[in-house]
């Protein structure tokens, strides 16, 4: 069986739709992973031990096990306890939490790297500890760690292919559906790879723009 790329144009719309779903999954999980990462980082550094240690264990498990396994746990686990989430929601939660843990690690390092003088500067103005963390420390930490968080976002985009396994109809699953009709795996997976590549280029471009914009404010 040779190659025949002429089957692709007929599925242009399907692949486009799949790509849009992939972008949607990426964006929603990115938001979860970003704000979740900040929350986890603040908890890990400032919360009392009774809160901190369970969260640390949670992070440890999330960093030590494969994302695919976590997706299975979330999808099937939630069903077992009676929560039947749409695959999209389960996928986005799984991806978002997984990367929130990784982002939290980076943001913690960012927080610790903020100059001690910033803390003093804010406190001498009369800001409380919480206000200082919220308004001064975290915003600065986040700005300095935008490049590594961007790298995580790029990894997240590629890992979003995994949610096809729990039945989210994004780019990878769309390609598989097309393959089941045409029996042309090579052509469609190459096409899917090309779509991911283009989305990735767009994402990298966007991240560079953001980095440039915050460069002056740090």
């Amino acid at each position: 069986m040779g190659l025949d790329f002429t089957v692709l144009p007929g599925y242009f719309d399907a692949l486009l739709l799949g790509s849009l779903w992939t972008i949607a999954i990426m964006l929603v999980s990115a938001v979860i992973s970003f704000f979740g990462g900040i929350l986890l980082a603040v908890i890990a550094l400032y919360a009392p031990a009774i809160v901190r240690y369970p969260f640390r264990a949670f992070s440890f498990v999330f960093m030590g096990t494969p994302l695919l396994l976590q997706l299975f746990l979330i999808y099937f686990g939630l069903i077992q306890i009676g929560i039947d989430l749409p695959a999209f929601v389960a996928g986005v939660i799984g991806l978002g939490l997984h990367y929130a843990v990784y982002n939290s690690d980076i943001i913690q390092a960012g927080i610790l790297a903020v100059d001690k003088g910033q803390h003093e500067g804010a406190r001498t103005l009369g800001l409380s500890r919480g206000q200082t963390i919220r308004k001064i420390i975290v915003p600065q930490a986040v700005r300095t760690v935008i490049p590594p968080i961007g790298n995580n976002l790029i990894a997240l985009l590629k890992d979003s292919a995994l949610v096809s396994v729990i039945g989210v109809a994004e780019l990878t699953l769309t390609s598989q559906l097309a393959i089941s009709k045409t029996f042309r795996p090579f052509e469609f997976y190459i096409a899917a790879a090309a779509c991911y590549y283009v989305i990735n280029l767009g994402l990298e471009y966007g991240l560079r723009k953001i980095e440039k914009r915050v460069a002056v404010a740090r």
């Binding site: 069986m1 040779g2 190659l3 590629k158 890992d159 979003s160 292919a161 995994l162 096809s164 990878t172 393959i179 042309r184 795996p185 090579f186 052509e187 997976y189 190459i190 899917a192 790879a193 991911y196 590549y197 990735n200 280029l201």
Partner: peptide, 22 residues
């Protein structure tokens, strides 16, 4: 650039499912 720009899962699928075609 190509490998890092695309999902490992897709690369695996190309090799395993698409391989026989080439």
């Amino acid at each position: 650039s190509v490998i890092r720009g695309t999902p490992a899962l897709i690369q695996l699928f190309i090799l395993y499912f698409g391989g026989p075609q080439i």
